[in-house]
Design a protein around this nucleic acid. Structure first.
Lengths: 217, 217
DNA sequence: TAGATTGTTAATCGATTAACAATC
DNA sequence: TAGATTGTTAATCGATTAACAATC
């Protein structure tokens, strides 16, 4: 599987938000929208919206605008929401459970087929109908069931060894909540990071009494 | 409190990662590093690192490089890690609990003083030494305790009403896990969003068999 | 002093916005 | 046909990278 290089990451990062907005419009029975109207609703420019959509082909019609259900469907297709990527979740603590719920509640194209934890005490517990298994079984499970995506909800400590193994066993994408830099160690796989600490610290910067700022002027 | 406009958001978003790397170096007893070495470790360019640090003033020394503990301290200051922003968490489900743990485990400058949930059955439960309170008490709690930051771990449904109230009561920053667009409704407050669904769908795009891509060439 | 590496400015690159011809 | 709005190219803006003088 090759990496897609032709469409810029900034465009890609906006797709899920378009998808959410279009669902909302669709659910409210709106069938037609212009780039201008959508831009106003989303806080973007009409120009950017047209530019973005045109990366994937012409979804609109001159003089009319965009058909909401059709556009929603197209973007869903681009995001692969109708596929069922076999997914395993590693770590069944609070974060692991929250993430399992999120994946199950969302029509995102990922399907959890296994959950693993090193804490034997919680093995056997059910989350969204899937039993928590001991991390010791993860290799055999992957050989038998061939998952393609792993969701990492454990600390970074043992990540190097674990990712090396998982990638050998056929995992090609990671939703990574740990601080381990999978993408740097394995440029051949797809990684989407959620760095909670970094996010919180960014908010920290914004609300900090920055000494530099108050010294200037 | 004014918003800071002079330093670009791309630079700011890199600060927490610098901070993490510097802590790691510091813990390994490394006291000196050049922009080149740090760039190699982090997968950035030396030029960018010097450029970034210089937004905040000269932290290095020509011919020597950067002093790791000093630089770590400076960036910590910029991020405000030593302040104690009074913070409330709204929603004590799996996500709320995970986020409480994360905030407590991280030296980020945020201090949880209250946790709220609408589910009466879990009120009274302790999370990191703080009792879960009924959401009905949130107004009085804010009047009495004056928190400045709210962490939103509930669905988007009632967010408009809730954020309007909280902002009136003195909350000026949000760590937002819901899909409600606080920043658009309230441009005067600081918002850092964590859109889990969007993140997962971005990974979805990368691993989708994109029809457009296979049609071309 | 010579070597190393920063701080800072200029050049490049890429993303966003503006403009307008195409066309429904 | 006239009006509206897209698709697409060109202009602008901002972020990254390169270069080098300053200086430790």
């Amino acid at each position: 599987m090759d990496k897609k290089a032709d469409i810029s990451i900034s465009v890609i990062k906006r797709l899920p938000r378009y998808y959410r907005f279009l669902l909302h419009l669709k659910e409210n029975g709106i069938v037609r929208i212009s780039s201008k109207e959508l831009a106003d609703k989303m806080g973007l420019t009409a120009s950017q919206i047209r530019h973005d959509f045109n990366c994937f082909g012409g979804f609109g019609q001159q003089g009319y605008g965009y058909n909401v259900p059709e556009l929603y469907g197209k973007i869903g297709e681009i995001l692969g929401v109708s596929t069922e990527r076999k997914t395993i979740v590693i770590g069944a603590g609070n974060l692991g459970k929250a993430v399992c719920n999120k994946i199950s509640a969302t029509n995102s194209g990922f399907k959890i087929i296994g959950i693993f934890d090193k804490n034997e005490a919680i093995c056997g517990n059910m989350i969204k109908g899937i039993p928590v298994r001991s991390i010791d079984y993860i290799e055999n499970f992957c050989i038998d069931n061939k998952p393609v995506c792993a969701v990492v909800c454990i600390p970074s400590n043992d990540m190097k060894e674990l990712t090396d193994i998982l990638i050998k066993l056929g995992i090609n994408s990671f939703w990574n909540f740990s601080n381990y830099d999978i993408a740097m160690a394995h440029p051949e796989v797809f990684v989407e990071n959620v760095h909670l600490t970094d996010s919180l610290m960014t908010l920290g910067y914004l609300t900090a009494e920055n000494p530099k700022n108050s010294m200037e002027d």
